[in-house]
Amino acid sequence: MRAIVLRQDGDTAKPAIEDISESDLPEAEVTVAVEYTTVNYKDGLCMSPKGGGLVRKYPHIPGIDFAGTVEASGDVRYKPGDKVVLTGWRVGEAHWGGYAEKARVKADWLVPLPDGLTTRQAMAVGTAGFTAMLAVMALEDHGLKDMHGEVLVTGAAGGVGSVATAILANLGYDVAGVTGRPELEGYLKSLGAKRIVARDQLNETVKRPLESETWAGCIDAVGGAMLARVLGQMKYGGSVAAVGLAGGSALPATVIPFLLRGVNLLGIDSVLRPFESRQRAWKRIARDLPMDKLEDMVVEATLGDLPALCADIIKGKVRGRVVADVRA
C-alpha cells in the first residue's frame, strides 16, 4: 500500500510517498480502505519540518481526515463494506492517519457515512466543514433565528468559512463574509454571502468596549483582535462560535459585551466531540449543505499533491476545500 510517510532527517522531518506493508499499521479494531482525504490547517502543521508541535513520534503517516470502506472489523458496529468517515481524535497527529491507501483505527473514532453523502463529498466537507456545522448548531442552540439579522463569518474564504457561508445561506440567513482577499468576492457571493466585509474593517482593536449592535451571530475562525472587535458589535443576546485562531490566540477584549449585552462566546471543539453529536452534525451536513455549492469549493488532488498543498495552506494560499483521491 502507498502512503505519505514522514521520517526524521536530523532534527527535521521530510515527507515521501512509500510502499509499506499492511502489517506496519498500528493495532486497532477496524481496517479501512481509504478512498479520499483532504487538507486542513493541522495537516499543514503536521507536514512541516518540525511537525508543528503535533507529531511526537516518527515514522508517521499524517492526514487528520479520511473516508472509505471498512475492509476488516473486530467490532460488531462495523462490517466489511460499510462506508465510514473519520475526523478528529488526534488521528494524523498522535496516531497514523489518512494519507495512505489503508488506515487502522479504533471503532469509537468512526462515524457511519450518512445516507446522501459519498466518501468524496465527506472529504470535501472534512474537519473544516464538520466544524462549520458544529458552529451553526451551537448558534441555533443558543437562539439564533434567520429574522434576527446578519450573521458574520470571518475567514470566510477558508475551509471552515466557505462551508459555514454555504450552510447559513441555505438555511435562510443573511451572511456577511469577511476576507482579506477582495478577488474572492465573486466566490463568496456564489456560496450565498449577501455582502463582503473587508478584513481591514475589523482587524484593528478600538478603545470602546461596545460599538453599534450589528451582528445577530458570528462564526469566527480568526480570533485575536478581530474577535475582540466583533464581540463589541454583537446584538443583544447574540452569540459568537469561536472555531479558530488564524489571527492569534490572545483576546484583547473586555467583559463588557457579556455583562451589558448578554453576548455568548461559544467554544467549538471538533477533536473529542462525542459520537452522538458527531452523528447529528453529519446528518445535518447531508441535509443542509447544498452539494452544488460544496462542489464549487473543491480543488482536486492526488496523494502526490498533498505535500505542496499542506505547505500552501500554512501560507493561506488554499481556497475552499481540497479533495485528494489517495488511490490516484
Rank of each mutant, 00 (worst) to 15 (best):
T165K: 09
L210Y: 12
V318H: 10
D269A: 06
H142E: 13
R7W: 00
G155W: 01
V323Q: 04
F66E: 04
R56S: 12
D115V: 07
G126Q: 04
T118N: 04
D292I: 01
V197H: 06
M147E: 14
P59K: 05
G98W: 09
K79E: 14
P80G: 08
R319T: 15
F258D: 07
F130P: 02
M226H: 02
T118S: 15
M234V: 06
K42N: 08
R56N: 13
R120T: 03
G74C: 00
I313P: 10
A216I: 09
V263E: 03
T131N: 03
A28Q: 13
N40P: 11
A193G: 10
T127I: 00
V299E: 01
V271W: 00
D312S: 14
T179H: 09
L272Y: 13
L152D: 10
L188G: 07
P80D: 05
K194A: 15
E295N: 12
E140F: 08
G172N: 12
R199D: 09
P59C: 01
G52H: 09
L191S: 06
I314H: 00
P252D: 03
L303A: 06
L260V: 13
G172A: 06
A156W: 12
K57V: 09
G223W: 12
L25S: 11
A328L: 14
A33W: 01
A72F: 00
G217D: 13
P307L: 01
S73V: 06
P290L: 03
G74L: 06
W89R: 14
D305W: 07
F130R: 03
V243K: 01
V322I: 14
N264H: 15
L259G: 02
A225P: 05
D19E: 15
E29R: 10
V32C: 07
K317T: 00
A324K: 07
T119R: 10
Q233L: 12
M234N: 06
D288F: 08
L134G: 04
T118P: 11
E18A: 13
G172V: 10
G316E: 03
C218N: 12
G304M: 00
R319C: 08
V299G: 00
E185F: 07
T205W: 00
I17E: 08
Q8Y: 08
Y99H: 13
D146E: 09
V84P: 12
V125F: 11
P15W: 08
H60P: 09
G44P: 13
D115L: 04
P257S: 04
G217Y: 13
G237Q: 10
K106S: 15
T118H: 08
T118Y: 09
S212D: 15
Y187I: 01
I313Q: 04
G10N: 13
D9H: 15
R319H: 10
E185P: 10
